[in-house]
């Protein structure tokens, strides 16, 4: 029963900065919000393997091929422990996977953009992983214990990914004229989508207030986005790439960088499924799932037979 007393008690724990653990009492709505957020995070890690995987086979040096493979492998790992963390809320991974392959569950829209050149891989490392780190550093202090711990681990690896992307982008930005052009073009295409990763403006974000009250999130979308912009302006300057926003100006009063209006029409359009790669991403994930069914069935059947043999033997 969710009587007021219990809710107050729960809120008091949150306000005292205590972590909520799987066996603790929690409001049903808290559980549902976490399942939504955490599984969306997991799905994003998995779909995120596709745009980057697109360049593993064509990576321009053995070192870069290894770096990219390791990165994509890390993402599969993140997906795996985020699913496990979500399962602590009493839902099966298979159900979660079905929700995004055949239902309404979402993943981050950023992965519906195409990786057209190798510089996109570097820009993703710098901007997309950079944005993810800002978000996940906050989530590492989230009130739900398993989610908080998963994010601590993820952040460590993401920081490494970001560093690798940034370094290679810097190399390209100071490389041959073709490399410089490729690097700038990638930044031009990934800048705005990376700002969109923080979600709509606070005024258009229906879940924010509740999530902040429960300390699932500790900052609003706009606060996180501003933090990201401030950092990226400095980092862009350091490697001589231009951020494609003529309105970027330092605001002496606030101490932050003001930036232009995000193309929200494009954002909502991609969310609705009309990004260049939405259909391909879903097709690829569905076909991996469906083509793998016989393998998963075989593993289950083999385990069953093996157990039966062991029982007979004893």
């Amino acid at each position: 029963m969710e009587n007021q007393e219990k809710l107050d008690e729960f809120q008091a724990r949150i306000d005292a900065g205590e972590k909520i653990e799987p066996k603790d009492w929690m409001p049903e709505r808290y559980r549902q919000q976490l399942i939504r957020m955490m599984s969306q995070h997991a799905h994003s890690e998995i779909v995120g393997m596709l745009p980057e995987g697109n360049w593993i086979e064509r990576a321009p040096s053995l070192k870069r091929k290894l770096v990219l493979l390791a990165k994509v492998q890390d993402e599969a790992g993140h997906g795996l422990y985020l699913y496990s963390a979500t399962e602590t809320l009493g839902i099966d991974r298979s159900e979660l996977v079905d929700q995004y392959l055949y239902g309404n569950a979402k993943y981050s829209s950023i992965f519906n953009y195409p990786t057209m050149t190798y510089a996109d891989i570097c820009a993703i490392g710098w901007l997309v992983d950079g944005a993810a780190i800002v978000n996940q550093t906050m989530l590492a202090r989230s009130s739900y214990g398993p989610y908080s711990r998963a994010n601590v681990r993820i952040c460590k690896e993401e920081s490494f990914h970001k560093k690798q992307g940034y370094e290679m982008l810097a190399k390209m930005a100071s490389g041959t004229p073709e490399q410089q052009k490729m690097a700038q073009d990638a930044v031009n295409r990934w800048w705005w989508p990376s700002l969109m990763m923080f979600g709509p403006h606070d005024s258009d974000s229906p879940n924010s207030a509740e999530l902040i009250k429960w300390q699932v999130k500790l900052k609003t979308n706009d606060e996180l986005r501003q933090h990201f912009v401030d950092r990226m302006v400095m980092e862009a300057e350091a490697i001589d790439v231009t951020l494609p926003d003529p309105d970027l100006t330092y605001n002496e009063e606030t101490g932050h960088w003001d930036f232009g209006e995000i193309p929200w029409d494009e954002f909502w359009n991609v969310v609705k499924g009309n990004g260049i790669m939405n259909r391909d991403r879903m097709k690829a994930r569905r076909s991996a799932h469906e083509n793998g069914e016989w393998v998963r069935e075989a593993a289950v059947e083999y385990a069953r037979k093996k157990k039966l043999r062991e029982e007979k033997a004893s």
């Binding site: 998995i46 393997m49 596709l50 995987g53 593993i56 086979e57 091929k65 493979l69 994509v72 492998q73 599969a76 790992g77 997906g79 795996l80 699913y83 690829a284 076909s287 991996a288 083509n291 793998g292 069914e293 393998v295 998963r296």
Partner: peptide, 18 residues
């Protein structure tokens, strides 16, 4: 490496990439 992101289950995506 062509399997990356296309494996039959997440554990195998990890294993084959590895």
């Amino acid at each position: 490496s062509e399997w990356c992101g296309h494996g039959p289950q997440l554990e195998e995506d990890l294993a084959i990439a590895n």
